[in-house]
Design a protein around this nucleic acid. Structure first.
Lengths: 232, 232
DNA sequence: CAGAATATTATGTGCAGACAAAATACATAT
DNA sequence: ATATGTATTTTGTCTGCACATAATATTCTG
């Protein structure tokens, strides 16, 4: 019998230890909550909290009646924090700079219209800017804002505050989608980023929504060599 | 007074609704758990579960005694699921293929040695393979395995099961780090991926650990045009 | 007035008991 | 044999209560 584990963290750690020690191998059914609670000398709710957390992290698979088993293929979840660009740069101790290139109403390309589920010929606010780190180009922000869904967006001067930052605190979104990819720099992007045409650029496309109304679509093109890091 | 909300999900949704409706603006202190429980006609534990979940998602900031407030900069968290490559391909309804290119003991380059915190001249198992989707090259897997930390790795024939898949179910890790970047294809990679030299490739570098012992480092180079998608 | 001791307050977590919901296994009826 | 209904098992979650813990506010003391 086990020494009593009366915190959900202790139970969490012990279960994880057994999995790593292969006492419980991938695919194995582990004892039910009631039995584990008895073994650990704690309440079932405590075991539940521990196992639920492990399931959220993809370590366990749980199904009512079927029980709890060790995940066969522990799905790794990488959590990417997407901060405001200014914060991202300042947190590395670099000085932040910002250059607005364009701010005008226009009808976007078909591709953007589709991504935003827009009626044809809808005019959007097009904002284009470069964010600088230590006076070197860091990332190009190419953004389309749905002025109908963001009150006041028309009257903002995005040379003072970046659209990136303004939107975050003025246009809360309910959900969004995000895509990462690699593209070769065209002449325009390479010039803005002080790079060579053809250089491989890391890009992030993001569209955010307020329920079923689109707020904004942005394409961020990072300077060559950019890496996005996180942990598992 | 509110209609009774007696499930944590209902409380969760109502709090989110109020934040989104700007009843509670970013930075605002919201009522404490006891008061909310009274208002919603449920137990404090139920409110706690809802608020805790929202805090985990970055929507709320909570501190003992100081109370709960709406996050000023709702840090967007994009959760990337990193599945087994075979599953990733099969889930799209494509047929999976796999070609082992190399499996031998060798001393890795300095760069890899550093990433893995290895003593100089340590021999590792080097596995190189291409994963195919519908008979087209999908991704190059270039992997180094610390044979000392993974018992049995030496006697596995990675032409039968991919290292990617075998390791996941035979070498559980405690933590890891992961980096995404864009690189231009060199002659070797472009040939393996049926691409042109200079094409922009999406790359993922991943190193996993079992406590303080390194298990494996892998570089995945995706075919041109690859996109990694998720939601916010 | 400064600094230490103490009280207060909000969240964090534990416990026991209860019932709900889902999924399976088993029994029954046609 | 097949379809349907019922029992059982396991996780999911709610309740009400208690105490722990962290952070702040207040009081006491020199």
């Amino acid at each position: 019998m086990q020494e009593t584990l009366n915190s959900w963290q202790a139970v969490h750690d012990e279960v994880l230890r057994r999995i790593h020690a292969r006492d419980w191998a991938p695919g194995d059914l582990i004892p039910n909550e009631t039995d584990l609670a008895a073994e650990f000398g704690c309440a079932r709710a405590t075991v539940n909290r521990a196992l639920r957390t492990l399931a959220e992290n993809g370590v366990l698979d749980r199904r009512r009646k079927a029980g709890t088993r060790v995940a066969l293929h522990p799905i790794s979840k990488a959590i990417l924090d997407i901060p405001v660009i200014r914060h991202e740069i300042e947190q590395r101790g670099q000085t932040y700079g910002y250059v607005l290139l364009q701010q005008k109403l226009a009808v976007p390309q078909m591709q953007i219209q589709l991504a935003m589920h827009l009626a044809a010929n809808t005019k959007l606010l097009h904002v284009k800017a470069v964010h600088m780190a230590d006076n070197a180009p860091y990332v190009i922000e190419d953004r389309w804002i749905n002025q109908n869904s963001v009150s006041g967006a028309n009257s903002i001067d995005f040379s003072i505050i970046s659209a990136n930052e303004w939107l975050l605190s003025h246009a809360p979104y309910t959900h969004g989608d995000i895509t990462f990819s690699a593209v070769a720099a065209d002449a325009h992007k390479s010039e803005l980023l002080a790079a060579q045409p053809g250089d491989a650029l890391f890009e992030m496309h993001r569209t955010t929504w307020d329920h079923d109304i689109v707020i904004t679509t942005v394409c961020l093109s990072y300077a060559p060599g950019h890496k996005m890091k996180t942990t598992l």
